[in-house]
Simulated assay, not measured.
Amino acid sequence: MSRQIVADQQNENMEWGRYLHENAYARDKKEVAWDSIKMDTLSKRQGELVVAEVKKTSSYLKSAKMQVLFYLYNLKLAGVDAVGELRFPEEKRREEVELDAAAELEIQEAVRNIRYIMAQELPPEPVKIKFCGKCAYQELCWA
């Protein structure tokens, strides 16, 4: 992404994600771009700003949580208080995401690692992991 390489937009998971994004949670404001991030939905609940990310499945829960935590962290740096939520419409469930002190440290470490990789002249050698089979970037790594 730092090199403006775009995922395969015809990937079935990308297409399904777009469908969910367009059709789930109709009452919420959709895809809000702020700074360098795009949040799936924004809403207010009992006076709190709720930043939510809509996912097809909870299979990749850790990465989904990190995404929401990244949004919350950036909003906090800008002086905006918000709470986070993961939404899984196919599973009919939601999960709260809280930016506590431990999560903030984890996000800061992840950002440092990402910046280190971005600064390298060449990307690291690919390592096959469980995410590779459905990844919209797989041809880039394994072609």
Rank of each mutant, 00 (worst) to 15 (best):
L99G: 02
H21S: 12
S58I: 11
E95K: 07
C135P: 02
E31I: 05
K56G: 15
W16D: 04
P123Y: 12
K30N: 09
R115H: 02
I117R: 08
N23Y: 15
E91G: 06
R93V: 13
A33L: 02
L20N: 06
F131E: 15
L105I: 04
A136W: 05
E125D: 02
L122R: 13
K30Y: 09
Q46D: 14
A78F: 02
Q120K: 08
L99V: 04
K134H: 15
S43D: 08
M118Y: 07
E48S: 11
F88T: 00
I117F: 07
A102W: 12
A143N: 11
E109V: 02
W142V: 04
S59R: 13
E106F: 14
R3T: 00
V127M: 01
P126H: 13
E90A: 06
E109T: 02
Y137S: 07
L86K: 04
K55L: 01
D8Q: 03
L72F: 13
A101L: 14
V6G: 12
P126A: 09
E98M: 06
I129C: 08
L49K: 04
E90P: 05
N13H: 08
V111Q: 05
P126R: 10
C132N: 02
E31A: 07
I129T: 06
V97R: 01
K134L: 11
L61S: 06
A7D: 10
P123M: 12
E85W: 03
G17R: 04
P123I: 09
E53D: 10
I114K: 08
L69D: 02
V127F: 01
A24T: 05
L122N: 13
V127H: 00
Y60D: 11
L61H: 10
N113T: 00
E48L: 12
L140E: 07
R27Y: 09
A143Q: 09
E98S: 06
Q120P: 01
W142Y: 12
I107A: 06
Y73W: 15
C141P: 06
V54S: 01
Q138I: 10
